[in-house]
Structure formats: structure tokens, C-alpha cells
Design a protein around this nucleic acid. Structure first.
Lengths: 248, 248
DNA sequence: CGCAGATTTGAGATCTGTCAAGGGATGTGG
DNA sequence: CCACATCCCTTGACAGATCTCAAATCTGCG
């Protein structure tokens, strides 16, 4: 089994043991693939499964009866989809693939069982869940309290930093597989206004469309433009005394 | 020890045993009180503790350098503050009491330890975390994709339904301890506009200010006004097969 | 009484949405 | 190869929503 982004992320925690990883690997046996536009999770669908995104981009969203849609967050390799599936009867959200994607999928009950027997893995999963919640917090603040163009620049930087941490991008720039319609649904604005904001950033030479791809040109200036502080993305190690408690 | 809102909430799950509750009670020994306006958690503060709100209202927020502020969610009795504290070095958010409040407080490491030894409690806590995330999701959709007055009506209903479930309100109406400034920071609008939306709802006889208190007059019409669907607040029981996995 | 905080309102500037239309790229079927 | 459809990006014009600035009222409190 190849080393997945999740493995890499967990290994950085520096306290999981081989048998913890064995328990994880046992979950990740079954694979699924999705192509761009495929639904991984349908809204209102019964959720008995959990996914680990191994490769590709997906996003989680809610849609309204009248067609409006709100993107909640983006999931990149190493992210977990449906961590709470075992606890929730139905999903309130949908998950769709942006790029071709590979996922590991398993019954949520198996996750619960695994966590119940490997407390260090439990700690690690909680840490991942905590990371996810911090990004949801920031999405709320972004949509609620930032100006439209700053919202966009801020989102770009969040994704850039996440890609950097995953080794999927270079320091200077990132390429994002996002359409302006998707951006507008993420940032809570019309697609026309999303285009206006994007064009503004383009004229400022901060971003560009090259061969139909969204390219970040100057992440430093973007950060300044957005008032971006990557603190909420820091994957700080767990304090040692917390780990001590789990030396079974 | 009196039966807390958290106990009541967990008891409704119908699968926790006495020893699970014992483990919980062991955590809840130490109490804190806060008065209106007190900070329970400071932004940027080191977080080694977790709180269980026993009584009163608090809210969680992020603030910007320039004074802007975004409320992320409201916490009512039975809610947990800092569930991920053990994993995160610093808090990215603050927590402030709206009303006089009583909280149980304990080192986050104790929570981890307790969860590692009582898998059913782990499942229950994950369930609570899942509830919390569903409300964050809805807050994103509310702020991102609803019109201002609908945002407000929608928030009112979320709080009303939560109060109902807690037995802290009557079916017909609720009284909310929120100022319009706080509402504006929750809904992502200026306090002037919050007032205008509120006045609109007032003129429609859906809400009122009585003796300085925010009163919901007609939750049925409010729900219609907001396109409110309480589905995301349903605390559905865990499927039986999930629980089976934990019959140790 | 004076002060601080909360609510309320008006006026004008600015932001954002809707409607409408056009262009470019891509893919499919004939 | 062309005709056509589809999807995405782009722009202009106008209407409507929302923000900022400013000021007035009210309440509770010391």
C-alpha cells in the first residue's frame, strides 16, 4: 500500500505507532474513483460510510430548493469525508468531485470500532476533525465579515497554504481547479460579481487565467490584499503531556 | 450532582451505561461561573481546558485587527466548549458569556483519557461534535446564501428549536438574550442594517422587543419567512448496528 | 444629573444582484 | 469537416441591497 497523504499527515504528529497505522490501513482497503462532477455523497442520502480522500479535489456543499448553493469547504488529499457518518442518519450536505479523485471507503462502524481500540488513532482523528472545524470557522468569518475581493483572495491563500503543506504546490504559486461559478457559490456572491472580483485581482497581477487554469501569481501580495493570517491552518503538534496520557 | 443538560442530552441516546455517566461525572467536578460579558476563552489563548456549559448562554467568535467581529455559533446549556482543546495549541476564537453562566471545566487531557477508556462515551461525544458541525455548516449557508432578513429569521428559529429541545422555551415563542449589535456580528451585516431587518420583522408582527427583550411572536410564520427546515437540528438516534460494535 | 449602551432613523455613497448579451473553447453528431 | 450545443468567462446597464456617517431617543445605572 502506497503512503497516502493521510499517512503523511498523521506521521507528522510523531506519536502514532506501527500498530496504529496498521489499524488505519485495515480501514483503507477498498477504493473508489470518481471523475470530475461525480457526486460522492448525495444530499439527504443515508450515510453509513466514511471516505478518505487519497487523490484529487472534492467539495462539500448545501443546496436550496430554489437552486442556490453554498460550498462549505474543499477537501484535498488526506481529508476525511463523513467522519461523523456513524452518528448521523442522513447527510445534510452533498460532496462532489472537482477533479478525478481516488477515495478509500469503509463502513463508519468500522471506524468507530478502530478508534475504540486504538486511542492514539482516536486522538489523531480528533485532531483532524479539529483542523476541519477551524477551517469552517474561518469560512464563516470570511463570508460574514470580509469584502468580496478580500474573500476571494483569502480563499485562494487558504488553498495555497494547504497545497504547500501537502507538497502539491510550490512556494510562489498555486494552480487551482476552480471555476468562477464554484467560487461564487463558495464566497456567497453572484457569479457575475465573482467575475468582477477576479478581474480586479487579475488587473492587480495577483492572479491569472492561463490555459483555462486559475493561477496564483503573487501569494505574498495576495496575503496582504486579503489580510490573511495562516495561523488557523497551523498543524501544531499535540502537547506532549496529552500524548503521555495515552501510553497504554 | 444534579442532572445537567448534557446528561439529559446523552441519556436520550439510549445506549450509555451507568459507568459511562460515571466517567462523565468525574470530569464535571469543578465549576466556574461567569457573568454577562465575561470572557470564558480569550482569543490566542493557550487552550488546555475543556468546558461544559451547564447554564446560561455563551457565544464563540473571531475578531479582526480592525475591530470587525464574526460570531461563529451560540452555545446553550449542554454544549461543549473546546472539545478539541487537547489537540490545538492555541484557540483561534474567543468565547464570551451573554448571560450569567455556569460551566464545568477540566483539563482536556482528562477528556482524552476518559474517551480512550469508554468507547460509548467517545461515540456520544463524536455525536455532539457532529451536531456542532452541522450548525456551523448551516451558519455558513445562512450567511453566504440568504437575504439579510431571512438570515435573521433563520437564526431566530435555530435558537428557538434548540431552546425547545432543552425545555427552556415554549412551543409558541422564545425570548432571546441577543442585542442587535450581536445579531449583526452573527449575520454578517452592519448594526444599522440589522436594526432595519429587525424593524421589518417587527412590523410583520413576527418578533418584538418587550422590556428590552427580544421576543419571537410567531415562529410558524417566521419559519415560512426564513425557509427554515429544522432537519439539521434533528438529534437522530445512532443506528443500532453502530452501537452493537461497542458492546464491549 | 451625566454617562454608557442600545435602538432608531435619514441621507447619500457604495456594493452587489439581476438581466441581457456576446465570445471562446470544447465536444458530439452528421 | 461543419453545425450545433454546452460550458465558462466577460461586460454593460440598471435596480436594489447594504454600508457609512450622523444624529436623536431611550434606558439603566452610579
Amino acid at each position: 500500500m502506497t503512503e497516502s497523504a493521510l499517512h503523511h499527515r498523521l506521521r507528522a504528529l510523531n506519536y502514532l505507532r506501527d500498530d496504529d497505522f496498521d489499524a488505519l490501513d485495515a480501514l483503507l482497503k477498498h477504493r473508489e474513483t470518481a471523475t470530475s462532477g461525480d457526486l460522492v455523497v448525495m444530499e439527504e442520502q443515508d450515510m453509513h460510510r466514511t471516505w478518505v480522500l487519497l487523490d484529487g479535489w472534492t467539495f462539500r456543499y448545501k443546496s436550496f430548493e430554489d437552486g442556490r448553493r453554498q460550498v462549505l469547504n474543499y477537501m484535498l488529499p488526506g481529508d476525511i469525508i463523513g467522519l461523523y457518518s456513524a452518528m448521523l442518519r442522513r447527510s445534510d450536505y452533498g460532496v462532489e468531485a472537482i477533479t478525478p479523485a481516488t477515495l478509500a471507503v469503509f463502513p463508519s462502524t468500522e471506524l468507530i470500532e478502530a478508534l475504540a481500540h486504538t486511542p492514539r488513532l482516536l486522538l489523531a482523528m480528533s485532531w483532524i476533525a479539529g483542523q476541519g472545524e477551524r477551517m469552517l470557522d474561518e469560512q464563516i468569518a470570511r463570508v460574514g465579515r470580509r469584502a468580496a475581493a478580500e474573500r476571494m483572495a483569502h480563499l485562494f491563500l487558504e488553498l495555497h497554504v494547504r497545497l504547500l503543506k501537502l507538497g502539491l504546490s510550490r512556494e510562489a504559486a498555486s494552480v487551482l481547479p476552480l471555476t468562477q461559478a464554484l467560487l461564487s457559490d463558495t464566497l456567497g456572491m453572484s457569479h457575475v460579481h465573482a467575475n468582477r472580483c477576479f478581474r480586479t485581482l487579475t488587473r492587480e497581477k495577483l492572479v491569472a487565467l492561463r490555459d483555462g487554469q486559475l493561477v496564483l501569481l503573487d501569494t505574498g501580495k495576495l496575503a496582504q490584499r486579503a489580510g490573511f493570517d495562516a495561523g488557523y491552518l497551523e498543524e501544531s503538534a499535540v502537547p506532549l503531556d496529552t500524548v503521555q496520557a495515552l501510553k497504554t
